[in-house]
Structures are given as C-alpha cells and as structure tokens.
Design a protein around this nucleic acid. Structure first.
Length: 502
RNA sequence: CGCGGGGUGGAGCAGUCUGGUAGCUCGUCAGGCUCAUAACCUGAAGGUCGCAAGUUCAAAUCUUGCCCCCGCAACCA
C-alpha cells in the first residue's frame, strides 16, 4: 500500500443523490469510511472525513416538483434525513458538503473557468436520440432495446470537456501507480475500458431544459452537468475555492470510497478533470461491491425481506456496523439476510466476545472481590497470549491500511477465541481453590487480552467497546500489554450482547 | 474468439504470485468442562480443490484446451 506517505488521511464517500431516502448502500459506504477514519485517527494521523449530498440535476428537480416543493426545500428535507441517519449510525464525519452550498458553487465555477482558460472546453452541436419520457439522450443500443418511449431525433448545442486529450496520460498514470484503482480487477476493467478511444465529456445542459444546477461562468444560458458538478465536491471541501493553505494540506485525497457503479466516473472522468485542473490525483480509488437483499425470489416467498436499517432499533447500532463490516468480502457483492445477521451476532458477539467479558468479570467478582488481580509471573501460556496480542496491534494496522477490514475483524476474533480456549485449559475456577496468585495471573492475562481486543474493535463498534473499557476502568488506554491496572474495581454490567434466540 | 474476475468438504471464504502433509468461520455428530449469555473447549464425519490433457520426483498451485457463473462495455448518481 502506498497510501500513507503523509501523516494525514483524507477519506471521502460519494456524495449521495437526493432523489430518494437513504438506504443500506449509503449506510455501508459511510460506515466503512467512518471505520477507516477512526482507525487512522487512532494511529495518530490527522484525519479529514468527508461525506455529503449531490443536490442538483433533473431527477432532483422532478422529485421536488412531484412533491410540490421548491428544489431547495426538497433538498433540505432529505438532507435532514441523511444527517439523522448518520447520527444514528455513529458517523463522525468532519465535514458535510452539499452541492448547493455557496463554497461549492464557487469551486465549480472556478474549475470551469480554469479548464476553459486552459483550452479544454469547446461548444458543439450534439445530435442524437432523445427520449421525451425520460428527458434525456439515449444511445443507439438503448433505442433498439424498445424500453424508451417518445423517441425523437434531437439536436442541441452544449459545452464539452476535451477528455480524450488526456487518455494516454491517464493510461500511463494507472500503469505506473498500482494502488491507484482498487481492487486490482477494477483497475484492469478501467484499463480495458481505456483501450477504446475516449470521447469528450458533455458538461452542460441548457437552462431551458434543466435549470437546477450551477451556472456556467462563461454562458448564462447553461448550467453544468451533474458529474462535473458532483466530482468537484472533493476539492471544494478541501478548500479549493477559498483556502489555498487548507488545499495544500489535504489534497490529494487518500482514498475515495465508491460503489462499483460509479467506477468509470471516478477512475476516468475525475482524473482527466484533475489533469486539466493541474492538480494531483487521489492516492486511491476503492470500489466496493453491492449488498444484495436476500435471495430475490426465495426470500420474497418466505416473507423475509426486511429493511436492514430497522435492525438498528432492535439490536443496536454496533452489531449492525459489525455485521456490515465483517460480512462484506473485499470488493465483492454480499448477501444481506436476517439469518446471517443473527448467526454473526450470536457466534461472534454474544458467544465469543460478550461471553468472554462475562467469564472474566464473573470470576474476578467471585475470587477477587471484583478487583483486577495482579499479573504476577507470566508462564509460557501467558507469554503466548501476550505475544499474540502485541503482534495483533501491528497486524490490524497493516490490514486496515490495506483496506482489508473484514480480515482485521476476523484476526481480532481469533484472539478472543484463543483467550476462551486459554481459560478452558487453565481453569482458574479450579486453580483459585489452591493457588490464588496463579489464578490472578490467569485472570489478569485474560482480562488484558479482552481489553486489547476491545480497543482494536473500537473503530467498528465504538459504543459497546467503550462500555467494555468502562467496565474495566480502562477507557482511553493504548493497546499496549500491561495498561490494565491491578486493583481497579470492575463495574457491574448486563450481558454485552444478549443472545438472540431463534 | 470484445475485456476482466471467479469455480476449493452442506454454506461463506483463505491458500494459487514464491509447486511439496488442503486451512478458517458457520453448520452436523460425539465427548469434555461447568467460570460464563444452553455459552466455552476437544474430537469426528464430510473435499476426485469445475472438466481434460501436459510439465515435474511432486500441482489446488505452472502450461494448454474446454465447460459454467459473474462484472465491465461512455455521457445513465
């Protein structure tokens, strides 16, 4: 990974289009960004985590009209629903950009002027098939698909960005920067795409047809088209229009998280735009897969289609964050089912992690009056646990830097399982009857390993891990072996993750 | 032959680059333990590693051919 050449970390989600309410896809990307941001903060880096909304365009205009609202009111309402979801999901973003904000309008117009002055913009008549029903141009293939109504031959003057000019430069860049587009097979897809001659990008819409957008600074009859508007947001928030100092600090972004559907726009349009703007390219563009809800027909007939977000109210936000992060395999699609959620919840969180807390706190309560015992002399089994825990810290950092979140989580759970096994073998409930000092060593070791697991899991489950650390009297401590203080009275508690009976 | 990814015990994945007893989680069965959220621990059953041929002392791993699944293929968030 070549992501961390600097000590700071700028992570973005796509800006979400406000023609509909937020769904699991939005939630997933944003949680992933939040988890990465928290891990990097925890590593001591300065972090800038950006998310936001794309509020311009025809579909927003239509959605607003359909609800009998003006565009801005419609956007404000949906913005509120996104913000409240982020609160519910424990998202700690540093900025929330909306493309209707003044700073963004300034940034887009500045960028348009810049590429125009650079000679990369021209105006031209575009002729093609136009679907009146869809209110957009369609391709020949789409026309032949028969899925579009009221098709007309249509001619329109528009502004174009000379994207084709940068094709070879982009190919060279991708070839010399292996980590730029991830996962690797997405990079190959982009390179495959770039084997065809690249066209130029239409970046305008006449106001007469679509007025809800940012006016083009050199032609008052036009607004800029969605993608040109949207992509610039990553620059706006980094200070492009109003703070050169800030821009130098944060640009280029460390990682743009995106869904696989918007790979081309981010891996082709955006880099060529940045070339034209004479700005460096983001270090990494990472495309993840999609959540499929159940198994289509099967789950429908079983009546199992549920809104994943509704699980938050029932099970809490941490298990939902955990499930989404653990279940999605790098870059691939994942299946969301209630069954797999409960399985994951019970086996990992209730049986392994939560139950370990109950075991150690119960034993310490019984044999040490609730106070953390002295570590004493470590034997071979204790050194094994300690070594695993110490090595785990570095391993987790490496996995996170490599964007392998689900593997990082699995590694932490391996430690938890190892400690459960260790307890079984050492049986402190037997040892305590003859050798209390030795029992103390066993329990200190187990508790300390649990504490380190909780610290390492905290970016994924900030709430419940904080509860664990609070019970152990160890909030804010580092994942270094020995930070757990002997003599601390454990707080009483309920089951951390009550088992879900099925 | 458009480009690319993949096919590993019932399920989901790792291992393939750097050939050499096929690993993890869940599930199933049997036992153990009893501190714990009927949790935990141990053991077992279960795989011709898509098919075929080749290279090699040795192939899931390298080569070739074939079959099947999936993604991408431009202005559509």
């Amino acid at each position: 990974m070549m992501m961390n050449l600097r000590s700071d970390f700028y992570v973005t989600t796509p800006i979400y289009y406000v023609n509909d309410n937020p769904h699991i896809g939005h939630a997933y990307t944003t949680i992933l960004a939040d988890v990465l941001a928290r891990y990097h903060r925890w590593q001591g880096q300065d972090v800038f985590f950006l998310t936001g909304l794309d509020e311009h365009g025809q579909k927003v205009q239509q959605a607003a009209q359909g609800r009998g609202l003006c565009e801005q009111s419609h956007c404000d309402e949906l913005a509120a629903s996104f913000v409240s979801l982020w609160q519910k999901l424990d998202i700690q973003n540093d900025d929330f950009i909306r493309t209707t904000q003044k700073r963004h309008i300034k940034a887009v117009q500045k960028a348009l002027r810049k590429i125009d002055e650079g000679g990369d913009v021209y105006s031209s008549e575009y002729e093609g098939w136009y679907s009146v029903a869809e209110e957009r141009f369609i391709t020949q293939t789409e026309k032949e698909s028969g899925q579009f109504r009221e098709i007309k031959r249509f001619k329109e003057r528009n502004y174009f960005f000379k994207m084709s000019k940068y094709q070879q430069r982009l190919i060279d860049y991708i070839n010399t920067h292996p980590g730029f587009i991830q996962p690797e097979y997405r990079r190959n897809e982009v390179l495959g795409f770039l084997r065809q001659p690249l066209g130029d990008l239409c970046i305008s819409r006449p106001k007469a047809r679509m007025g809800w957008g940012i006016e083009i600074p050199f032609d008052k009859d036009y607004v800029t088209y969605v993608w040109f508007d949207a992509l610039i947001n990553y620059l706006t928030a980094a200070g492009y229009s109003e703070d050169e100092e800030k821009l130098r600090n944060w640009w280029p972004a460390s990682v743009h998280l995106i869904g696989k559907d918007i790979l081309t726009t981010h891996a082709v349009y955006w880099p060529t735009m940045l070339f034209a703007l004479e700005l460096p390219l983001p270090k990494t563009i990472f495309a993840h897969g999609w959540w499929l809800i159940g198994e289509t027909k099967m789950s429908k007939s079983l009546g199992n289609v549920i809104d994943p977000l509704s699980l938050i109210d029932q099970y809490g936000v941490d298990p939902v964050r955990y499930y989404l992060m653990r279940e999605m395999v790098l870059g691939q699609d994942a299946h969301f089912t209630l069954e797999s959620f409960i399985k994951r919840y019970n086996s990992d969180l209730a049986n392994d992690f939560g139950n370990l807390l109950n075991r150690v706190s119960g034993l310490i309560g019984k044999y040490f009056n609730g106070s953390v015992p002295l570590e004493g002399t470590r034997g071979t089994p204790e050194e094994e646990i300690r070594t695993t825990a110490n090595n785990l810290v570095q391993k987790i950092q490496d996995l996170i830097n490599a964007m392998r979140v689900h593997e990082a989580i699995e590694e932490i759970l391996q430690l938890v399982r190892q400690v459960n096994k260790y307890l079984e073998v050492q049986a402190p409930w037997k040892v305590a009857k003859t050798n209390l000092v030795r029992a103390g060593t066993i329990l200190y070791t187990s508790t300390e390993a649990l504490r380190i697991s909780a610290v390492l899991l905290s970016p994924v489950m900030p709430g419940r891990t904080h509860t664990v650390l609070d019970i152990l009297g160890a909030t804010g401590t580092a994942p270094l072996w020995g930070k757990l203080k002997a003599g601390i009275k454990l707080k009483s508690h309920e089951a951390l993750f009550p088992r879900v009976e099925t």
